[in-house]
């Protein structure tokens, strides 16, 4: 389905897609991207300084309505890795504007990182290129079952509230890592087609629906 290409320095590709990983410090953003691009695991924790990015060349296949294999395109992925520490917050949020899709990550063994997902969503809505960017919620470190603090049910409820996909991944074992990125890439490619096809009125409509979905959440908070 997906195969990586060794040549990375030439311009022989059809699409350049910029994705960005965000979340609290220590949730496994750098390890996750390293697993995806090089298929290796580095157990040692090295905090990221400010900002970084990795690259990968993949082959994307569209699904035609008939069910047969559609056209294939070469996609060059630029995967931005951000620092989760507070002192780099001002630097990393400035790069949200240039990203087409986002991997919002939290640690399944850390309840606090899951609670901060709401704050990261607010940052995204404020700094991303549009009001409702494409986001995939990722719960990392799924292989540590004995230290699990966030239940799958809770995470799915939060993802459904925002209308975004949810995946439980493990950078150590590599499970669900490719699936998470592929899902985000699909969302971005569909977003391209829609932006070019539909007039701007539809975009306003979708923006309105997004605002409507946000209002009930606030009401619930007031009740609490």
């Amino acid at each position: 389905m997906f195969s990586s290409s060794s040549t990375m320095t030439d311009g022989d590709y059809d699409y350049l897609i910029k994705l960005l990983a965000l979340g609290d410090s220590g949730v496994g953003k750098t390890t996750f991207l390293y697993r995806y691009t090089d298929n290796k695991f580095n157990p040692k924790f090295i905090t990221t300084v400010g900002i970084d990015f990795r690259e990968k060349r993949v082959v994307y296949t569209t699904n035609s309505p008939n069910g047969t294999t559609g056209k294939t395109f070469k996609v060059h992925l630029q995967l931005w890795d951000t620092a989760g520490q507070e002192r780099f917050r001002s630097l990393t949020t400035a790069f949200f504007r240039d990203a087409m899709g986002f991997l919002l990550m939290f640690d399944l063994t850390s309840q606090q990182s899951f609670l901060n997902v709401r704050n990261w969503m607010s940052q995204l809505q404020a700094n991303a290129y549009c009001e409702n960017p494409d986001i995939v919620l990722v719960g990392n470190k799924a292989d540590l079952a004995d230290q699990r603090e966030v239940q799958e049910k809770q995470a799915k409820e939060l993802a459904d509230k925002y209308g975004i996909p949810y995946f439980e991944t493990s950078a150590a074992t590599g499970s669900e890592v490719d699936k998470a990125v592929v899902t985000l890439l699909d969302l971005v490619m569909k977003r391209m087609e829609q932006c070019v096809e539909k007039p701007s009125a539809d975009a306003n409509t979708s923006d309105g629906s997004s605002k409507l979905s946000a209002a009930p959440a606030q009401q619930k908070k007031c009740a609490c």
Partner: peptide
């Protein structure tokens, strides 16, 4: 249309709407 998708102009248009 294909040019706009592949060159990333769609993204710049969306970005210009918000900023």
């Amino acid at each position: 249309r294909e040019f706009k998708i592949k060159s990333g102009e769609w993204f710049l248009e969306q970005q210009a709407k918000k900023f």
